Computed example of a mutant assay.
Amino acid sequence: MRPQRYSVRRERIYEAVAASCEHPSAEMIYNQLKTELPQLSLGTVYRNLNQLAEEGRLSRLDCGSADRFDATVAPHTHFCCTACGRVLDLPVPYDPVLDREAERWGCQVKGHSLTFLGICSGCGGKNTVL
């Protein structure tokens, strides 16, 4: 897919994701930018995040609830807390062996993402589930 033409809103949405360590959702970005960009709608945020992900400028993370977004598109591992919704980068190295294992099944692998689900250390093992 070719990049969309330049848009101030799209760039601000991208910048907001890039500046965040929270791997924000569309709603988080909307709430952050709505004062600065009063004409911004939640639909516009969703549309632009999806376009940025399709262009490869953002990574989309499926953590079981709302999609989260990450401006770090190089392969890396995530942890999604099922209690509080926190998303963390983990220092687990990318393993190309997994790509080769999938290729044994006749797949043409372009990469993989690894996301762990569980309870983060901040929740201390609380049994609350989103």
Rank of each mutant, 00 (worst) to 15 (best):
L49M: 06
V97A: 11
V45H: 03
S7H: 00
L117I: 10
N48G: 05
L61M: 09
F79N: 00
A74K: 13
E22C: 08
G124P: 04
S65E: 06
V109K: 00
D70V: 03
R12H: 12
C123L: 11
F116D: 02
Y14R: 06
D99C: 03
Y6F: 13
E15C: 13
E55N: 02
P38Y: 00
V97N: 04
H78E: 02
Q32A: 15
G43W: 06
R68H: 12
R2F: 14
P91V: 02
R10Y: 03
S113M: 09
E54G: 10
T82K: 10
R104D: 09
R104H: 14
R68A: 15
A66W: 11
E55T: 04
L90N: 00
A18Q: 07
E103R: 10
S25L: 01
T115W: 00
A16L: 11
P3Y: 03
G85F: 00
R9T: 12
S113Q: 09
C123G: 06
L49S: 03
Q39C: 08
Y46H: 15
E27M: 14
L117C: 10
R10H: 02
H78W: 14
N31P: 06
L58V: 09
Y94D: 02
G125M: 09
G124Q: 03
Q108V: 14
C21A: 14
G124E: 15
F79G: 04
E101D: 12
C63W: 00
D67H: 06
V97F: 03
G43I: 11
Y46C: 12
R5N: 08
C80M: 13
Y6R: 04
I119K: 15
K126I: 15
T82L: 15
Q32F: 05
I29E: 03
T128Q: 11
I119F: 07
C120T: 07
C63G: 10
Y94V: 01
H76M: 15
I29A: 07
M28G: 09
V87P: 01
F79A: 02
